[in-house]
Write a protein that binds this DNA or RNA. Structure first.
Length: 205
DNA sequence: CCCTGATTCGC
DNA sequence: GCGAATCAGG
């Protein structure tokens, strides 16, 4: 397989979406994650958070030999118009939803009033507003159908620990699907638990 | 052990 | 330019 324009485009898009190299490789097919990573680097888009300008010091690991490879930056940015459709705010339309209790979210605040926090304890990282992408929500709902419904005792290092149901009843279990490396949740639940780190970073302050 | 990206270097 | 092997980390 070779890096056709189309394949490169897919690579760029998915990488931009924060997809992992292995995921991209899988999508493309015929290449390994190594190939993808290698290509990513050659394309010069290894840094997913393209914040040019705010470059402070650092990034000078070579105190000795400067640049053995005459690196020329043939930047050609304006190539992609990138009609990225901004996802409209998720539609929390869940009026007549089924009585099934929605999985509690880690960043969910049950008590709207009670900013009390353990003394001197820095506030836990709050992923800003909980604007979960519609896709992520849909994904979660889908996943919960396939949940292995593990009990607490059945959880392991590599099972999703996302709670489902009401802890006060028997209708309670854990997702149990394969968790992502180093994360406590499966792919879908990671998606709602953590913000994609990209999205709209900061809307003008 | 599972996974992640980063880097190297022979091709 | 390519990507397997390797490295470094979670």
């Amino acid at each position: 397989m070779s890096w056709t324009d189309e394949r490169v485009e897919t690579l760029k898009r998915m990488w931009g979406e924060g997809q992992s190299a292995s995921a991209i490789a899988k999508e493309l097919g015929g290449v390994t994650r190594n190939a993808v990573i290698g290509k990513v680097h050659r394309l010069g888009l290894s840094n997913r958070t393209d914040d040019s300008g705010t470059e402070s010091a650092a990034a000078a690991p070579t105190p000795k030999a400067e640049q053995p490879t005459p690196e020329k930056k043939a930047e050609k940015k304006p190539a992609a118009p990138k009609p990225e459709a901004e996802p409209i705010a998720a539609k929390p339309e869940r009026a007549a939803e089924k009585p099934t209790i929605v999985a509690p979210q880690p960043n969910f605040t049950p008590a709207p009033r009670r900013p009390i926090v353990p003394a001197g304890q820095p506030l836990p990282p709050q992923p800003s507003a909980n604007e979960i992408s519609p896709e992520a929500l849909a994904s979660v709902r889908e996943v919960e159908k396939k949940a292995r419904k593990l009990s607490l005792m059945e959880l392991t290092e590599r099972t999703c620990k996302w709670p489902i149901g009401d802890p006060a009843t028997d209708k309670f279990w854990f997702c149990g699907l394969p968790s992502q490396a180093g994360k406590p949740y499966c792919e879908a639940h990671v998606g709602v638990a953590f913000q994609p780190m990209s999205s709209r970073r900061d809307r003008r302050r």
